[in-house]
Design a protein around this nucleic acid. Structure first.
Length: 617
DNA sequence: GCCGTTTTCGGCCCGACTGTTTTCAGTCG
């Protein structure tokens, strides 16, 4: 449903960028930007709307509605094409470099002919920016740093981008009659925070029609390799997709193999080898005595043998021939559970398969019962169009009810984020509206909260009396990211010590591929959270995933509680929950450690943070 | 180009920081 909306949103955003770069009136760029957000986040499929319907969307008037109609009629927007012809795509790409905005990008293009990130790097190396107004030594340094940040993502994409593509491909392949099963594997199934390429697995006795279906997809721009059981393609967005087709009876072993990680696979194969078994993507096999003798003679340790067995799980290696009689008898291979069981392990959730102790835990029976999406009873950090969200409260709440939540918190920004223009009156009026709305949803408890801004000293927007009126307060860092480590640590610890602050939102403030995490002594923050009864957020927005998995692993050792929240700014963002839960799983979190899996009563007790309960009139 | 307890025209997200500019432009949230 969201795809056409996102397409149009992206196109309007591009137009906004191009207007800004070409130096059009600043309000014009802003208006297209607002419209882009509104359209992308709109709850109805915009491809089904006529001009009148489109004008119902906030920030969409006659002119933009006409452009959207034009897009669905012709596949393009003339005005956008006109600007594209004037400005090379690489110039817009330049504005993705942090600290480089539209004005400077245009100056680089006009004055030095720089039309790509690589051009810029070359110009920096050749000292060709010297004498250009506004580009001193410090700016050059910032640009280099920004390019490094951008490249660190290294062609990897965020989870939502990978997931959307994967689900589209899996759906297309599943529709092929010869397809018995199809699923995505690899780092996406493990929910790593970024994904380099997609591993798609299918089960069929007739692989050819599946290969053909993949290469025939509209989104494919190039066929990289095309064999009997493996096909690799590149999509129009530049992503590599590998499809492997295996016999249906090999499904479980293949899924295990292609889900990885490599380190996890080495360990599982090692365990198999020790039991005179052999685990491949085709199944778990006995090792015939002759082969066993050869093994012993070669003097390979189980580990060496396991390493030799493991090809690159991300599809680098050539597909092996299915095993012949020499390989021994097939023991199991139909399901992952069978495969793990036969080597003496319980099934291990894909999100744990990183060789970070899960093998040992599985063997000892101490594998965590990780939190699942079904465990989540409510979202505790969401926005509406009262601040920077794009959907009215009524729509956000309706969507929350639709998801079957027990409770749901609206947490719009507080006044210190000045651009949001929040006031006490607006916040109190929203509370009234929320209470009125609550009557329509007897099974959903609506919580009125706010997302406070943690200022450089660790103070938040409102005094205690006003904060006491909220059911829940999230508090987050939104600026002054470059304070010293000591200042930042003090700042977050002070926020935790505020008796009204319940959750620290996106604790490291990182934006994946754009902004590094703040330099803070997280151990001190974990300690403060555990001590004060403040939860740490696992922000599910795919650009953030903050805290990330490794930080979660560290934090939980302090006995910290967590809140897995979407920070939704649109109805569609409520679905980001899956990425937050995936990240929480990668951090080994159980439901009991996540406050928004708790029944309302227990949650309320936690939110009081040791204060006396408010008296209800 | 959109919008309206500021309503059919005249405004439009505000404030701070950074770097290089000697008085401010560009970027960010």
């Amino acid at each position: 449903m969201a795809r056409p909306n996102e397409q149009v949103g992206a196109l309007l955003q591009e137009y906004a960028d191009l207007v800004a770069i070409t130096g059009g009136a600043p309000y014009r760029a802003r208006v297209y930007e607002k419209a882009a957000r509104s359209v992308a986040g709109h709850h109805l499929d915009v491809s089904t709307l006529d001009a009148a319907g489109l004008r119902e969307i906030p920030n969409v008037g006659d002119s933009i509605a006409a452009k959207v109609v034009e897009y669905f009629r012709t596949g393009r927007i003339e005005e956008v094409e006109r600007l594209r012809a004037r400005i090379p795509a690489g110039v817009r790409e330049l504005t993705r470099i942090p600290t480089l905005g539209p004005r400077k990008a245009m100056m680089l293009y006009d004055e030095r002919g720089i039309a790509s990130v690589q051009d810029l790097l070359d110009a920096l190396d050749a000292g060709r920016l010297k004498g250009l107004k506004g580009f001193g030594p410090k700016t050059e340094e910032n640009l280099r740093h920004g390019i490094t940040l951008l490249r660190q993502a290294g062609g990897r994409v965020t989870l939502d981008v990978a997931m959307e593509l994967a689900e589209e491909i899996v759906a297309a392949l599943s529709a092929v009659p010869e397809c018995e099963r199809c699923a995505y594997a690899g780092s996406l199934r493990r929910m790593r925070e970024t994904v380099g390429d997609l591993d798609i697995l299918a089960a069929s006795t007739k692989p050819r029609p599946l290969m053909k279906a993949l290469t025939g997809l509209q989104l494919v721009s190039e066929v990289i390799a095309h064999g009997d059981t493996k096909t690799s393609v590149r999509t129009t967005t530049g992503m590599q997709v590998d499809l492997r087709v295996v016999p249906p009876e090999s499904w479980g072993a293949a899924l295990q193999y292609f889900t990885g990680s490599k380190a996890h696979n080495v360990r599982t194969r090692e365990i198999a080898v020790r039991q005179d078994l052999k685990l491949s993507e085709y199944g778990l096999f006995t090792v015939p005595p002759a082969q066993r003798r050869r093994r012993r003679k070669a003097g390979l340790t189980a580990e060496q043998e396991a390493v030799a067995e493991v090809l690159e799980p991300d599809g680098q290696g050539e597909p092996r021939e299915p095993p012949d009689s020499e390989a021994g008898e097939l023991v199991v291979s139909k399901s992952e559970k069978e495969v793990y069981a036969r080597i003496g392990l319980p099934w291990i959730p894909p999100t744990l398969r990183e060789d970070r102790g899960e093998i040992e835990a599985a063997r000892d029976g101490t594998l965590p019962d990780v939190v699942t999406e079904q465990d989540i009873r409510g979202d505790l950090h969401t926005h509406t169009d009262l601040t920077d969200g794009v959907a009215p409260m009524t729509e956000m709440v309706a969507a929350a009810a639709e998801r079957g939540y027990d409770y749901y918190a609206i947490t719009d920004h507080a006044p210190n984020l000045y651009m949001q223009r929040m006031t006490d009156e607006k916040m109190l009026a929203q509370r009234e509206q929320l209470h009125a709305l609550a009557k329509r949803y007897p099974r959903l408890t609506l919580l009125h909260g706010t997302e406070l801004n943690i200022d450089p000293d660790g103070e938040v927007d409102w005094p205690a009396e006003f904060l006491a009126g909220f059911d829940i307060c999230v508090a987050s860092v939104h600026s002054h990211f470059n304070q010293t480590r000591a200042q930042l640590t003090r700042r977050l610890v002070r926020a935790c010590e505020n008796p009204h602050v319940n959750v620290i939102g996106h604790p490291t403030a990182r934006l994946i591929g754009h902004r590094p995490p703040i330099d803070v002594d997280l151990e001190a923050v974990y300690e403060a959270c555990a001590h004060t009864g403040t939860a740490l957020e696992v922000n599910a927005s795919p650009d953030r995933l903050d805290l990330g998995d490794e930080n979660i692993l560290a934090a939980r050792r302090h006995g910290v509680r967590f809140a897995v929240d979407t920070d939704a700014h649109a109805v569609a963002h409520l679905d980001y929950l899956r990425y937050g839960v995936g990240t929480a799983q990668r951090g080994w979190l159980t439901a009991d450690e996540v406050i928004n899996t708790w029944p309302l009563r227990r949650l309320r007790t936690f939110l009081r943070k040791g204060r006396k309960g408010r008296k209800k009139p």
